[in-house]
Design a protein around this nucleic acid. Structure first.
Lengths: 200, 200
DNA sequence: AAACCGATTGACTGGTCAGTCAGCCGTTCC
DNA sequence: GGAACGGCTGACTGACCAGTCAATCGGTTT
C-alpha cells in the first residue's frame, strides 16, 4: 500500500515541472514533451489541463504576480512610513527569489523583461505594480517624507528597476547570492534609492 | 544610368532591416525571410553575409555595446567628478535610445534582458559594463564623494537597472517619451541614485 | 454487471522555417 | 572571346514540434 496517492494534483505537478524546465532551458527552447517528461506525465495530459504551452507560462506568471500586487497594496495600506513601505516591497521581492528562485527567474526572464512576447499579454498587470509603487512615492511626497521634484512614476521605475537588476545579477551569477547578500539587499536597495549614494 | 548604385553595402542594409524587423516582431517570431524582404534582398544573401540568424543579432548587439563600453570607460578616464561621470553614462544611454530607439529596444529586449538565450553569449561583455560602472563608484568612494557602506557593484547594478527600466518604460509605452522627458531623465536618474528620494 | 465519465495515454499530422545549394549574373582580366 | 570570380538568387529539404484525437483506464452510479 504505502502511499495511497490520493489523486495527486497532476495540474500542479505539471506547473511545478514547467517552472524547473523553463528555468533550465528557457521558454522558447522548452518542448511540451520536456514538461510532460519532467512531470512524469503523458504528453497529452498537458493539453488536458492547459489550452497551450503559452497558457502554462501565463498561469505561472499570474499566480505569482498577483501575490506581488497584493503585497505592494498591503504595504501601502499599512501605517508605516513611506520608506518602510518601500522596504517592505523590496523585502517581498527578495524573499520571493529566496523562496523560489527558479520561478522568479522564469517570471523575470520570460515575462517581465520580455514584454515583446509575453509581457505584452501581461502589460496591464505589470503596470499595476509600477503604479502602486508610484502611489507610495506620491503619498510620501505629500507627507513631506520624499522630495517633490522627482516624478513618482519615475521614482517607481527606478526603484523597481534597481531591484530587478539585483535579481538578474543573482540569476545569471554575476553577483554572489548568499543568504546574507539577499538579506542585506533588502535594506540596501531602499537605502540607495531613499538616501542616495552621496554622503549625507 | 540614374543611380550608379556604387555597390551599396548590402550587409549594412541587412543589418538595418533586421533592426526594424526585430524591433517590430521580436527576434523569435522573425523569419529570416522577413529580414530579407525588409532589406529588399534575396533570402540567400543573408546567409552570404551571416552564418546564421543568431549571428545577425549578435552583430547588432556587439556593434552597439562596444560603443557603450567605450563611452563608460571614457567617462571614467575624464577628470570630472564621480557624479558627473555617472551622469555622462546615463546621458550616453539615453541618447542611444533617442538616436536609435529600435536598436536599443532590440538590444534590451532580446539580449540584455534575455540572458537565457543570447545574454549567455554576451554575458562577458555585459558584465564588463557593470564592472566599469562599479569602478567609477569605487573611485568615488575612495575620493570621499560617495558613502562607503554601499558595495560598488551593488550600486552599479542599481544605477544601471534604474536606467534600463526607464528605457523599458519608454519602449513599452508605459511612460511618455518626449524629447523633454528623455532630456530630464538623464539628470533625474543620477539625482535619484546620488541624492536619494528623501529631502536633504 | 453494465453504463458512464473524467482522467490519462502517446502515436500521428500539418505546418513552419533555418539553412543549403546549384546556378545565374556582371565585372574584370587575359 | 572566354574564363574566372564573387555577389547574388530563390526553390528546396530535412528537422522539429505544437497541438489533435482515438483509445484505454479506473472509479462511481444505478
Amino acid at each position: 500500500m504505502a502511499s495511497k496517492a490520493p489523486a495527486i494534483d497532476k495540474r500542479r505537478q505539471i506547473l511545478d515541472a514547467a517552472i524547473r524546465v523553463f528555468a533550465r532551458q528557457g521558454f522558447h527552447s522548452t518542448r511540451v514533451a520536456d514538461i510532460a517528461d519532467e512531470a512524469g506525465v503523458a504528453y497529452g495530459l498537458v493539453y488536458h489541463y492547459f489550452k497551450s504551452k503559452d497558457e502554462v507560462l501565463n498561469e505561472l506568471f499570474s499566480e505569482r504576480w498577483s501575490l506581488l500586487l497584493a503585497a505592494i497594496e498591503e504595504a501601502d495600506r499599512s501605517e508605516a512610513s513611506p520608506r518602510a513601505k518601500l522596504e517592505a516591497v523590496a523585502g517581498f521581492i527578495v524573499d520571493s527569489y529566496r523562496y523560489d528562485p527558479e520561478l522568479m527567474k522564469v517570471i523575470i526572464v520570460e515575462v517581465t523583461r520580455a514584454a515583446n512576447s509575453f509581457g505584452r499579454t501581461h502589460l496591464t498587470e505589470i503596470r499595476r505594480a509600477y503604479d502602486s509603487i508610484a502611489k507610495i512615492v506620491a503619498d510620501g511626497q505629500e507627507a513631506g517624507a520624499f522630495r517633490r521634484d522627482i516624478d513618482p512614476s519615475f521614482a517607481s521605475m527606478s526603484f523597481y528597476g534597481a531591484i530587478e537588476q539585483q535579481l538578474s545579477g543573482w540569476i545569471f551569477e554575476l553577483t554572489p547570492a548568499t543568504d546574507t547578500d539577499l538579506e542585506q539587499a533588502k535594506t540596501l536597495v531602499t537605502a540607495t534609492i531613499c538616501d542616495g549614494l552621496e554622503p549625507r
